[in-house]
């Protein structure tokens, strides 16, 4: 059985760029995101983000699946949001490359968990 994994995301208010909640505050990199496997903790973090109206716009939780041990957003919309426009691989966070960016780029359709998360940074 796969567990329900979540990541908290928003847009930065002043800049508009996509941000994710990380251990060290809000990060532009999906790779930094905290992976929640506890629904209550995820909801509490969302509440806190909603209160941070001076820095964030539209915070919400996204579903993540553990694909080959890596946390991949289940919806292709959220993967594109985490990467940047697919037509411009040089734009947005995807430009940095890395294992996780590659995993998101490879995922197709509705990603489903293929086992437990191999990595880390859970709450």
């Amino acid at each position: 059985m796969s567990e329900a994994l979540k990541v908290l995301t928003a847009n930065d208010l002043a800049g508009g760029q996509v941000v994710f909640l990380s251990e060290a505050g809000w990060s532009d990199r999906y790779a930094d995101a905290v992976i929640f496997d506890d629904a209550a903790a995820a909801d509490a973090a969302l509440e806190a983000a909603r209160a941070a109206t001076l820095t964030l716009a539209d915070p919400y939780l996204i579903d993540v699946a553990a694909v080959d041990g890596l946390p991949v957003p289940t919806s292709y919309r959220e993967r594109i949001r985490a990467l940047g426009p697919t037509i411009h691989p040089d734009m947005g966070p995807q430009a940095d490359g890395g294992v996780l960016v590659h995993a998101l780029q490879q995922a197709r359709g509705a990603a489903r968990s293929s086992g437990r998360l191999g990595l880390i940074r859970r709450k």
């Binding site: 508009g16 760029q17 996509v18 594109i80 940047g84």
Partner: peptide
């Protein structure tokens, strides 16, 4: 703010304004 921003042509899109 959102309606004011929209009246000035500024949308929040997937990656940015």
């Amino acid at each position: 703010f959102k309606p004011l921003r929209l009246m000035n042509g500024l949308y929040l899109q997937l990656h940015s304004y």
